[in-house]
């Protein structure tokens, strides 16, 4: 017994080292199953506040590019509005269509990351603004990710640039579906998988979000096909150049689907029958 105590006191730092490494490794494993990574994420008050403060300072250095981005976005929305006004004067829409399916909450990115294999962002809106996990995060010209954990004032977002993200996408011209994933090499390109060979594709074709998921509205532009190859009667390596620049994200929109509960319930009922 005395020898045992002696061993422990002599190797105190060694044992402490092994213990700390095990705890740290536990955290790493935990963070890889993202549904359970509740302990160490930036959606907590302390790091959220620190990140927000530092972002506030950094904002001053990008004011002109932020302005340009807002002007571009304004122009885009004005055009959309104009189109909608023209449409609504031409035909009488059914009243149910007037209740929009989605509404959007603007949020500011306070911590951006795009250079890692698995990127997670933090935004400055939380459960106080009724943001929940599994909501879409978008720009007018791209999909950013899916909300992960929320606290009162902050939310973490699983970026499109993450090995765990799969996003339903389709061809703008032919409505063939595929799945977007990221291979981890270059933050301006993602890859499209499972596109059937029947879809005729060309370089320069536009990819938009598909309407199959409850998370994202249909038809958000994502990017264009930059290169692809065909092998064994299947598409390989369809490389998509993203419209959105992940290295310069600032304001994003969180998508709330008003009918998602209704749709999930309906689908479950149909499955049970």
């Amino acid at each position: 017994m005395l020898q045992l105590i002696k061993f422990f006191t002599n190797n105190r730092s060694g044992i402490l080292f092994v213990f700390l490494e095990l705890v740290a490794f536990g955290f790493i494993i935990n963070s890889h199953s993202y549904h359970h990574s509740k302990y160490l994420n930036t959606a907590n008050a302390i790091s959220g506040t620190i990140l927000k403060k530092s972002q506030n300072i950094q904002d001053y250095f990008t004011l002109s590019s932020q302005n340009k981005e807002l002007i571009r976005e304004n122009e885009f929305l004005k055009n959309q509005l104009e189109k909608k006004i023209n449409e609504s004067t031409n035909k009488t829409a059914s009243p149910i269509d007037n209740i929009s399916k989605y509404n959007f909450v603007a949020a500011k990115i306070i911590s951006n990351s795009y250079y890692k294999r698995n990127n997670i962002l933090t935004i400055d809106k939380g459960s106080k603004d009724s943001i929940k996990p599994n909501m879409g995060v978008i720009l007018s010209n791209g999909i950013i990710g899916i909300t992960l954990n929320t606290s009162t004032h902050f939310t973490t977002v699983l970026s499109l640039l993450n090995s765990q993200t799969r996003i339903n996408a389709k061809m703008k011209k032919s409505h063939h579906f595929g799945s977007l994933e990221w291979n981890g090499n270059d933050f301006s390109h993602v890859q499209l998988f499972d596109l059937p060979i029947q879809a005729k594709i060309q370089k320069g074709d536009t990819i938009i979000s598909g309407g199959k998921s409850l998370i994202f509205p249909e038809g958000i532009p994502i990017g264009i096909i930059e290169s692809y190859s065909v092998r064994d009667k299947a598409y390989q390596n369809i490389n998509i150049k993203l419209f959105a620049d992940f290295s310069a994200l600032n304001y994003v929109y969180v998508v709330k689907n008003r009918r998602s509960a209704e749709q999930i319930q309906l689908e479950q009922e149909s499955n049970n029958e």
């Binding site: 105190r12 536990g26 790493i28 935990n30 160490l40 790091s47 990351s113 890692k116």
Partner: peptide, 29 residues
């Protein structure tokens, strides 16, 4: 002991800010 515990806490703090689980704590310790 102080060095190890200090490194662990500093590493965890970095992890907390970067959403890295325990990567920095592990490497720094």
């Amino acid at each position: 002991t102080g060095l190890l515990v200090g490194s662990f806490i500093l590493g965890l703090f970095i992890d907390l800010l970067t959403n890295d689980g325990g990567i920095h704590a592990f490497s720094l310790v």
